[in-house]
Design a binder for these strands. Structure first.
Lengths: 211, 211
DNA sequence: GTCTATAAGTTGATAGAC
DNA sequence: GTCTATCAACTTATAGAC
């Protein structure tokens, strides 16, 4: 559980060439993310990861000081990836976009991150609940930062009602994340999913008591 | 992975006394469900379960032929418990209850099963995604039977649209299940949760294109 | 950077006494 | 029904050669 940050290069910096050969730590993290996503945290051993990376278990320790450090790196990148994607998409909207248009965009991007863009985000969602307290805690700062984006977006749906907002933020994120457990992008259309899910949630969030 | 069914008593049948001393297999399953729910599937060893039951690991094998069998028994009971609770609650409604009133009742009962009634149901939801394919498959019949209840309830919200129904069923169940990851019944009011979540989902499901 | 060798601990499971 | 003794397999991790 050291503070080692694998994104800080230990040796030579990456060539300015392009993204052709992924840096070794990145390659290892890619493999780890995919396996964690598919089989859960405890079920994936360092041996499994090393084998797919074409190396022996102890070689991993050259790149990551422990399994915990590797997991934490994967988990944090998982949130960072969605957060950046959502932030960029929101920034690309016209400045006068309506609150519900922003919300719909955020939902679409979040679903795409979950089902297509990144094994890191889906791995994060899948295994967060399986981690020992200590590792979960290490991911909380990233998670809180991401939730703040949604708190901003959702505050328009329940102005001046913090209690309602405190429920709506995790509820909406949770409902989107849950699609990971039943939707298969190889067998269904992601856009159809986003349309359907977006419709129910947006309509539900738009509803006012007075009507 | 034998077909042994622990509910079939191996020795003397339970005394007609009452539910005072839980049958040993039930006690073991109670402990297993609570631990699986809290720490995940792979992280809970038979030793952990045996210790809490006040026995040694090999003694468990008198009651369950393997860890897989124990897990399957817990998983199946987890769905059976909610299904019975929801079925009973629906049967208690007046026969002419409106579709959305039925839906609201089902949501309330499902949330209560998840957060209060049963460690089995919450354990099921938490660890299903962590199980190896084989064990997941063993739980599918129960799951499908439960989903049928929801398909019935939700078909009223999108008549003659099976594609929409096929998305709404897992979406609604998934959104409710996801509350397990963020709502703590010790720190929040379960009725408030049901009110808020029910309001958003019901309003969203009620929404028609024409409006 | 990657390897072999190895340590130290855990796991699910079986045999057989009581 | 529960125990002790034991097993083979696996885990994370370290030491040190190349």
């Amino acid at each position: 559980m050291s503070a080692a940050d694998p994104s800080v290069k230990l040796s030579a910096p990456r060539k300015t060439k392009g993204a052709l050969p992924a840096a070794r730590p990145d390659q290892i993290m890619d493999i780890a993310a995919r396996q964690f996503r598919a089989r859960g945290y405890a079920a994936v051993s360092l041996r499994d990861i090393a084998t797919e990376a074409g190396m022996r278990t102890p070689s991993l320790y050259y790149h990551f000081p422990s399994k915990d450090d590797l997991v934490i790196a994967v988990m944090n990148r998982g949130i960072a990836v969605v957060r950046e994607a959502v932030t960029e998409a929101l920034a690309a909207l016209p400045p006068d976009a309506e609150p519900f248009a922003k919300l719909e965009t955020a939902m679409r991007v979040h679903l795409r991150a979950l089902h297509g863009l990144s094994d890191y985000t889906s791995a994060n969602v899948r295994i967060f609940g399986q981690l020992p307290e200590e590792l979960r805690r290490a991911n909380l700062p990233e998670r809180r930062a991401y939730q703040e984006i949604w708190a901003d977006l959702l505050s328009a749906t329940c102005p001046d009602n913090l209690e309602m907002l405190a429920i709506r933020v995790p509820f909406v994120i949770g409902a989107l994340n849950a699609t990971l457990e039943w939707f298969d992008p190889d067998r269904g259309d992601l856009d159809v999913l986003a349309d359907q899910v977006g419709r129910v949630l947006l309509a539900g969030l738009k509803e006012r008591e007075d009507r």
